[in-house]
Design a protein around this nucleic acid. Structure first.
Lengths: 152, 152
DNA sequence: TATGAAAGACCGCTCCC
DNA sequence: GGGAGCGGTCTTTCATA
């Protein structure tokens, strides 16, 4: 089940579910001109294969007051401090994503904050306060024109 | 309804729905020691307020064969080429996110590819082929230790 | 005003074709 | 892959604190 090859129907189902995970199977079936049972079988198959990991609600961070999105490239003093630093970053609720990367930075994180002031506080008092961090570089996101998932 | 302030119950509901958007309201109600009707009212309110934007399935890009995740910082020859470049990037299915940022790069994108070879093809034949792009800098993600949404 | 309980409609799951 | 029946869930309404 590891490398289950999806076909066009699976692809269409994925696209529809990406848009709305709670769409009734019957409606989906009607749109795709197949029966509801078929939809069910395909979805089950993709769940079994691990392609569909689960369902999530899409939250508007903005409506919750989190207006500022930015990326921070982090350089560590020693590469061996990586696991420790991740643990510390994980404890910060403002850090929503972290990546261990090759290239200019050791760690690359995405941070959501309520305001520029809030960002400054997080950056100075929380992130740069971590001993193992040598330097940081901040990229503030002004717009997010593309945001989607990859479905071949 | 713009700035609806969520309370602890709303927060708990959001957390539960983030984990599994299809959890029965009855079960959620039981876990939170309230009635299913109350859950329904709260969810409706948050939908109205735009806090809940919709539901999505979580897809495993890896299972679909997309193993390589990387970030690419892009510098444009002219800032005015921004909208055009976004349009061109949007046409590339491998580009899953794009940000207009302050700092070292004009545009910052996230790219998912099937392999390093595939990445190379996309980078050279598709991204660097865009005229307005002056230079790029690639950060390949080796690990993604933190990945979540911000819920205060 | 917000919550809790119950009834009806709808949907999803399963079996058989 | 298609179609029908059963079981479960969601939604709505009404009463209540």
């Amino acid at each position: 089940m590891q490398n289950y090859q999806i076909d066009n129907l699976d692809r269409s189902i994925l696209h529809a579910l990406m848009d709305n995970a709670r769409i009734p199977y019957a409606e989906l079936a009607k749109n795709l001109a197949v029966s509801a049972g078929t939809i069910h079988v395909r979805v089950e198959k993709m769940k079994q294969a691990g392609i569909i990991k689960g369902t999530k609600v899409a939250i508007s961070a903005k409506k919750l007051g989190y207006d500022v999105c930015c990326f921070i490239g982090i350089n560590l003093k020693n590469a061996k401090d990586y696991p420790d630093t991740i643990t510390k970053l994980d404890a910060l609720e403002e850090v929503v994503e972290a990546y261990y990367t090759t290239g200019n930075y050791s760690i690359f994180i995405k941070v959501m904050t309520r305001s520029i002031d809030h960002l400054q506080t997080v950056l100075i008092s929380k992130i740069q306060a971590i001993d193992a961090i040598q330097s940081t570089e901040t990229l503030i996101s002004l717009q997010n024109p593309i945001s989607r998932d990859v479905i071949p």
